[in-house]
């Protein structure tokens, strides 16, 4: 409970700032939209190949758009001295990290919710199931948690735009593979039962591990 109050304050502040500037969600959304459009034309996705190609295209779009959003997660704090202000407050570093990760998670869900209809229209994709929703939620949670950590690391380097994807993608790869596998099974391009029962719990385990390790690493890297 002690962590909820500062986390809620951080979410309120970041949502307010995003509503004013719209520099994270809108730019990531445009980028994700372009990725879907380019893949649609480059791969000439016919109705017969939708189930085969859609999972990959969907997660490449989500991952690229998400990375763009993550790259901004700590930039505002850094530029305006807010991170030091946050670290001066009598709240745990865990609460600061989890608050920022929650904001990234919410931003990514908004981006994904806006991209899905575009994706559905362009690729004639109609296989929306609860399994797909579960895969999106679990993978996005892992993506946002790790992305927030690496955003905090990358923002302290000079070439942060390059550093973030270079550091981030190798770590998040198992989550992306799991998400693509479950999505493939959900849309009928693979054997559903085995894949889903194997990968969905694995995604949940990844999330649990990331939610424990990432706040701990964050508290180490922000000490000076």
């Amino acid at each position: 409970m002690r962590m909820l109050r500062p986390m809620a304050a951080l979410v309120w502040k970041d949502l307010l700032l995003e509503l004013r500037s719209r520099d994270i969600v809108v730019s990531a959304l445009v980028f994700g939209f372009l990725v879907v459009v380019v893949f649609n034309f480059a791969l000439k996705v016919s109705p017969e190949r939708v189930a085969e190609l859609a999972p990959g295209i969907l997660w490449v779009a989500f991952a690229f758009a998400g990375t763009l959003a993550m790259s901004r997660a700590f930039v505002r704090e850094r530029e305006q001295g807010g991170l030091e202000g946050l670290l001066l407050a009598p709240v745990s570093r865990d609460a600061i990290f989890l608050g920022k990760a929650l904001v990234s998670f919410l931003f990514m869900l908004v981006i994904e919710a806006a991209l899905l209809p575009v994706f559905a229209i362009l690729l004639n994709f109609t296989s929306f199931t609860l399994t797909l929703a579960g895969a999106i939620l679990l993978a996005t949670l892992g993506f946002a948690t790790v992305g927030t950590l690496f955003s905090a690391i990358a923002v302290q380097t000079r070439s942060r735009e390059v550093m973030l994807p270079v550091l981030f993608f190798p770590i998040i790869l198992p989550v992306l593979i799991g998400a693509v596998e479950v999505t493939g099974a959900a849309v009928g391009s693979g054997p559903e039962t085995g894949v889903v029962t194997r990968w969905l719990p694995l995604l949940a385990v990844f999330d649990a591990v990331f939610l424990v390790i990432c706040p701990w690493i964050f508290s180490i890297i922000v000490e000076e």
Binding site: P6, R20, S21
Partner: peptide, 26 residues
């Protein structure tokens, strides 16, 4: 602490900045 950096968010109002920090400090 009053440092060289103001630790303020430029796109928030004065009241919103203080509300944010007030919530952090309960």
């Amino acid at each position: 602490v009053v440092a060289h950096s103001a630790f303020l968010y430029e796109d928030l109002t004065c009241r919103e900045n203080l509300t944010f920090y007030g919530r952090l400090y309960s």
